[in-house]
Design a protein around this nucleic acid. Structure first.
Lengths: 191, 191
DNA sequence: ATTTAAATATGACCTTTATCATAATTTAAA
DNA sequence: TTTAAATTATGATAAAGGTCATATTTAAAT
């Protein structure tokens, strides 16, 4: 038998990684299967050995991306919940996040999801729930926070990043991000 | 001379209206010129007599939509600033807004704008500035509100609507909208 | 080294869609 | 009622891109 099980898995991961990066940056329709495969140094022919369709890939890439996120990784253990949330806000509301490639799907794909299939939309909803619940739980270990406060905070940081990507003027973006960072900190017990 | 100046103008408006409605609902790539023209009972042939290209139409439709908005319409005169903001929040954070066709481009097109041309992105940025400035000015006529507070509030309501469109579970959506409505009201002097 | 199943690449197909050329239609004015 | 300029419709063109069929290459196991 050719190719180790490992190699095939690794290739699959590479495709998912490239796919998510490109989808997040440009949305479903503005990315071609070709671009994705070239991005990980393959050609489009190899694609259908790994995935059923472009739509299928999109959904899988979304789930893959979530698995890479802070939320799924650094479960607050050594670092306190407070530190964890501080870092989350700092990272999330940074210009690097807005411009960079390690992107939160909730912000980067917000309107793109609307025209995807039901399964993908379910995935998105689950991600939102996850993020929201995590923030709520962590916050309530060291301060009082209502569910409404946390929900609105989650909407705020997602909105801030989504809008920031669309705005050209850098000064406006920095201002928006800083403002949201400040207000979010106040709401989460002054962090 | 055939067709009154008026008729041509009206047709142009109809195209813009249909275009915005469809673009807001599905994004640039998921809408065809054909669909837009059929939506206002014309065929695609008539299109290029009115607009230079699909991309051009998108930008014009965006500007057209802004002109229809509360922001551009009901300048607080008879109604007080407080009432105006109350209605803005009620409307903006309503399920009807999320599901309906009178849609705010800031929320509905947030990620779609990223892959549009520079001119369109400039338009979007201007709309954001406009909305933000309006809220800031009106709020500060009856309460104290920092720029940071208003910026974060604007991000919040945009984020709430953008995310709500992508979430399938209605109860979650209602919860999110209500939470944001409450927090926004608190921030704008308890409305 | 040879074998061979799996992975990858290449070329082709077919659909979709923006755009244009041209024909048909409309209606204000003569 | 006729005219003519503008609008609208129809048909054609061409490009893009998702998907598939087939050829080629790869490397684990013998």
């Amino acid at each position: 038998m050719p190719y180790s099980k490992d190699h095939t898995q690794r290739t699959r991961q590479k495709i998912l990684q490239s796919a998510y990066q490109l989808f997040a940056a440009k949305g479903f329709d503005s990315v071609t299967v070709n671009q994705i495969m070239n991005h990980c140094r393959l050609t489009r022919g190899a694609f259908y050995g790994h995935f059923k369709s472009k739509a299928d890939l999109y959904n899988e890439a979304l789930q893959f991306a979530v698995g890479q996120t802070n939320l799924s990784q650094t479960k607050p253990n050594e670092t306190s919940e407070k530190e964890w949330l501080t870092r989350l806000l700092d990272d999330y509301l940074s210009i690097e996040h807005v411009r960079g490639e390690c992107a939160c799907p909730l912000a980067f794909l917000a309107t793109d999801i609307v025209t995807r299939d039901r399964a993908t939309q379910k995935t998105y909803s689950a991600v939102f729930d996850g993020m929201n619940t995590a923030i709520y739980n962590y916050a309530n270990r060291y301060t009082r926070c209502s569910k409404a406060e946390v929900l609105s905070l989650t909407a705020m940081i997602i909105g801030a990043v989504a809008v920031s990507r669309a705005i050209k003027d850098k000064q406006t973006v920095l201002n928006l991000l800083a403002s949201c960072r400040k207000e979010a900190g106040l709401k989460l017990g002054g962090i």
